[in-house]
Design a protein around this nucleic acid. Structure first.
Length: 970
RNA sequence: GGACGAUUAGCUCAGCUGGUUAGAGCGUUCGAUUCACAUUCGAAAGGUCACUGGUUCGAAUCCAGUAUCGUCCACCA
């Protein structure tokens, strides 16, 4: 039964996916060679909040290509799928939903922690199901039996273990620092979770005692009592550091102190500023340096506090103009610049305006030197980590700090730098390494605690009975303490080890010291803390999660998957996630396991719409949803459209015509196979019985295809090895369409070698499989040898050596044939000969006479040629249109149709282009410098070209003279 | 203020370590429909490779600078 005329992806894709899954092919255990090299990718876990979008599609397509390619090459391949709990994103989505659907303004207060978490968990369950289905739709061949979720008990255990380890190493501390506070979500966010929006804001200059100071935020200025200037600023030389003065200010006179610090840029504004340490990162640091007092002006709810006097309780937007008004009334407003552009910090997730606040939070110290290394086997390895003695190790060795001395200590920053600098981790494209280093240089301590409920709890417990009673207080209560109290308190805590605070990976019911009641820290951890462990926490044996008698290192040692599949090979993800996630994984994994998380980072760009804009709900007409596209064009077409023409690190534009183009390609392939199957049926040949070794080229076309396959096979293999996905896919596309279909298949209609053809097509399916797995697998089932495995498990084609012949190669001979046929077709169109009409053609060639004679049938059929004469000796013709190839001249008889005007036109056109070409060659060859300095072979080649083009020109001149003569006669 | 990327046909993009008469897809024009595919086939038109210098026998390709667009980073209060 022949295949349908067009390929219908809907009829195949789900069925094929199910078949793959049932076959066990997605699991590394399906690799028969137990000693085979492993190849692992940890799938970047999509947020468990919603739906798959094109960003996911591109990542799934690329990763699946790497995975399928390496699986076919015989490696033990593991692709771990999963989802991320995405703390802030998820909690905010569910809260909004509850607010909207149940009309509860503050769900946290109304429902309480337990109930809200239950609601979020329900939501996430549904959402994860949706995502699983969508990942399958893309054809992702990941191992579902190893699916993980960042809130799994095993992963939670890993999170706690790493926290404890870092705390014990003194890398985690609790302290009062200026943090980014999102008043909308009521939580801190990290530096990287902030984006800046430029906004035109009036910029005010006020008189402050003898100084003029400027600000865009007058509502924060209530507590200002320090003026800061550069120590070398001559204008203010008469003011001494520490000097005090009284200034009239918003709510009456204040006593102010002069501070000299180099942080002030004398060139900027008046060179003097007042500071607001509680609500500004740099001011906070300055206050630390000079031990200055700090006051909170704005509450965590975004309203002004008591210090603002009559303005207390007002939200910022309301207070600002009123404060300005009051200062103006007092005569303190000097000027207003209305064109000032101010950068407003906005939360990446909630889009709320972020207000720096001083809060007691947990931090990871990125500068403290605590990590040790030791020389071993020539490289320095971190010691005491979870590698089994003598365990088979992936060829890539766990990372080390090259040249590190025994006992030398390193900071987390240094670890992150060294693994990339040493080339243990390679970033593609390379230019992102620079971006990465730049980020590390600017990296501050990482605030890891969040006042969100959805996430991993900070594994810290406070005993209310023993130790400092203040430890038992909640973080909110601590916020109410005075600054001095807080500073003293936090330094005490930072010292660590004191009673009353218990940091434990194991849940605790009572204080181990006094048996007293304990409270767990109410905060959760930054979502990137857990995703930072993704490559290895997903490989930990889940049965070990509850066994608190074993250490983290022990867990690593006893987890076979970790032993086999870590470090992973490729981390493929979006370029904009480099800091959030990639850098965090490098930090957390190298620290916690002593191994790099991955060897290669492949970064893809954004998927943009046809106008180069981000796809969003504001442009619904150009936005593309993969879930609409897949039913319409098929997953294969979508995959091809986003992997071909794409290059690492660069954005790609996607639009429907592009996808339709690749749908056409898939259909072209389908029809090529359909044609082959019809031929088999006609010749009563069962394709399933054609053995794979029947790769015997017989015709000229066979030989040419053979060599062309050799070349494309090499390009695809090399391309995929070197992450040049687009190059590999593109060469397959043009090979299949322009060579295989347009020439080989067409010629096979006149002279066929079916066993060879079937095997060639089989190899095409193999090479295309990583790119478009569904259609290739579907066709494979009709074309494969009966004993062959399904395509997903089939070995990657290997090179078959091509015997080196003498002289012109079959591929070159084939090209001569193609050129002759093309020339005849062109002459026909130029002379406007009816499409189906047979013509008489005379070909004269010394060089290729024998070859073309042997291919006569093809020339006749594809050129619609009736009378065909091929000879070595030219004969003069009248009334012909002519074309001149290298060593071959072709004359198309125009008896009765001869139109000298048309003929002249086409000859002139050819002449013009050849003359231009010849003149270029002449110029080159007349240049003595070229002749003497360029490689001799090149000079020879250019001379050869010149001879050839001059011969052609001579012939054209003859024809032209003849035609003009003809014109004159009439 | 720094860093990076882009600039090649009307549109979207290839052109890797310098040597091709600068390519593809879409779109456009002309022609074709029993015989795998109109999601097709044949043919064509269309480009001073952003600009200015430099290196070189030779530059779309390497270097420097300029312009436009875009991205990221940074304590300009």
């Amino acid at each position: 039964m022949p295949l349908p005329k067009t390929y219908d992806p809907k009829a195949s894709e789900d069925r094929i996916y199910e078949m793959w899954e049932k076959s066990g092919a997605f699991r590394p255990e399906s690799c028969k060679d137990e000693k085979a090299e492993t190849f692992t990718i940890s799938m970047p876990p999509p947020n468990a909040t919603g739906q798959l979008h094109l960003g996911h599609s591109v990542m799934l397509a690329l990763q699946d290509i790497f995975i399928r390619f390496n699986r076919m090459r015989g490696k033990r391949v593991l692709w771990v799928p999963g989802t991320d709990h995405a703390s802030i994103a998820t909690e905010s989505v569910v809260i909004k939903q509850i607010q909207k659907e149940e009309n509860i303004p503050d769900p946290r207060a109304k429902l309480g922690r337990e109930e809200l978490i239950r609601r979020i968990a329900d939501f996430v369950d549904k959402s994860r199901g949706t995502i699983r289905g969508q990942v399958r739709k893309m054809g992702a061949s990941c191992d579902w039996s190893r699916e993980r979720y960042t809130l799994d008990p095993t992963l939670n255990r890993c999170v706690s273990e790493v926290f404890v380890k870092m705390y014990q190493d003194g890398l985690i501390y609790r302290g009062h620092r200026a943090v980014n506070w999102d008043p909308k979500m009521q939580t801190t966010v990290s530096d990287d979770e902030i984006e800046y929006i430029e906004e035109k804001t009036p910029y005010y200059t006020f008189q402050y005692g003898p100084f003029q100071i400027s600000t865009a935020r007058p509502e924060t200025k209530f507590g200002d009592k320090y003026v800061v200037m550069h120590p070398a600023d001559k204008r203010y030389a008469k003011y001494k550091d520490g000097e005090t003065f009284t200034a009239e200010w918003i709510n009456g006179p204040v006593k102010a102190t002069v501070i000299k610090d180099k942080i002030v840029d004398p060139e900027f504004g008046t060179g003097v500023m007042t500071i607001t340490p509680w609500h500004d990162m740099t001011d906070f640091e300055l206050s630390e340096r000079h031990k200055l007092e700090r006051e909170q002006i704005i509450g965590f709810d975004g309203r002004l506090l008591q210090i603002a006097g009559e303005f207390a309780g007002m939200p910022i937007e309301e207070a600002r103009p009123k404060v300005v008004e009051k200062l103006k009334a007092k005569g303190l407003l000097v000027k207003v610049d209305k064109n000032y552009v101010h950068r407003v910090a906005v939360s990446y997730r909630g889009k709320g305006i972020v207000e720096p606040q001083i809060k007691e939070q947990w931090f990871i110290d990125v500068n403290k030197k605590v990590v040790t290394w030791e020389e071993q086997e020539g490289i320095s390895l971190r010691q005491g980590f979870g590698r089994q003695e003598g365990a088979r190790r992936h060829p890539a060795t766990p990372f080390g700090l090259r040249g590190a001395r025994k006992g030398e200590l390193f900071s987390l920053k240094e670890i992150m730098q060294s693994v990339v600098r040493n080339g243990e981790i390679k970033i593609i494209p390379e230019r992102f390494e620079k971006v990465y280093f730049n980020w590390i240089d600017n990296l501050r301590d990482w605030c890891i605690s969040r006042q969100i409920w959805w996430g991993h709890r900070v594994p810290v417990y406070y005993c209310s009975k023993c130790g400092d009673a203040k430890n038992a207080q909640t973080s909110d209560e601590r916020s109410a303490m005075s600054d001095e109290q807080l500073t003293a308190h936090s330094s005490q805590l930072t010292a660590g080890g004191q009673s009353g605070i218990i940091v434990s990976s194991r849940p605790i019911d009572g204080c181990p010291h006094c048996g007293g009641v304990v409270h767990q820290d109410p905060d959760t951890l930054d979502t990137w803390f857990s995703s930072g462990l993704w490559t290895w926490s997903t490989l930990i044996d889940p049965s070990l999660a509850d066994d608190f008698s074993i250490s983290l290192d022990e867990m690593l040692k006893r987890s076979p998957d970790f032993q086999d599949f870590h470090p992973t090979q490729i981390l493929e993800t979006a370029a904009d996630i480099l800091f959030f996630w990639v850098a965090r994984m490098i930090l957390m994994t190298t620290y916690a396991t002593g191994e790099i998380p991955f060897e290669t980072v492949y970064l893809h760009g954004l998927v943009l719409d046809r106008n180069g804009e981000k796809m969003s709900k504001s442009h619904p007409e150009t936005a593309i949803d993969p879930l609409d596209i897949i039913p319409k064009y098929g997953a294969d077409a979508l995959r091809l459209s986003m992997t071909i023409g794409q290059s690492p690190g660069n954005d790609t534009r996607l639009y429907e015509e592009k996808i339709a183009g690749y749908r056409n390609f898939v259909n072209k392939l389908w029809n090529a196979a359909r044609f082959v199957l019809i031929q088999c049926e006609k010749e009563k040949l069962d394709p399933k019985a054609i053995i794979p070794s029947a790769y015997e080229p017989k015709t000229l076309a066979d030989f040419a295809l053979f060599s062309e396959l050799l070349s494309v096979r090499g390009k695809v293999t090399l391309g995929l090895e070197n992450y040049a996905v687009s190059v590999a896919g593109d060469s397959l596309y043009s090979f299949v369409w322009d060579f295989f279909c347009d020439w080989y298949l067409e010629l096979s209609k006149g002279e066929s070698n079916l066993p060879f053809l079937v095997n060639a097509l089989r190899e095409i399916l193999q090479l295309l499989h990583p790119f478009c797995p569904f259609v290739t697998e579907e066709l494979w089932s009709s074309l494969k040898h009966e004993n062959a495995d399904i395509l997903i498990k089939h070995p990657w084609p290997v090179d078959i050596a091509l015997a080196e012949g003498k002289g012109i190669t079959p591929r070159e001979q084939f090209q001569v044939l193609i050129d002759v046929i093309s020339a005849i077709r062109k002459l026909r169109v130029e002379q406007e000969i009816e499409a189906g009409k047979d013509v008489a053609v005379f070909i004269y060639t010394k060089k290729h006479a024998e070859l073309l004679q042997s291919q006569e049938a093809h020339i006749r059929r594809l050129g619609h040629v009736g009378t065909l004469m091929i000879d070595a000796k030219p004969v003069k013709h009248t009334n012909v249109a002519s074309a001149f190839l290298s060593g071959t001249e072709i004359h198309l008889s125009l008896e009765g149709l001869f139109d000298p005007v048309k003929v002249k036109k086409s000859l002139l056109k050819e002449q013009t282009s050849l003359v231009r070409y010849r003149d270029g060659l002449l110029q080159k060859l007349r240049n003595q410098d070229f002749v003497s300095r360029a490689p001799a072979s090149l000079v020879e080649a250019e001379k050869g070209k010149l001879t050839e083009v001059e011969e052609k020109l001579k012939k054209i001149d003859e024809r032209l003279a003849h035609t003009i003569l003809h014109l004159k006669h009439n």
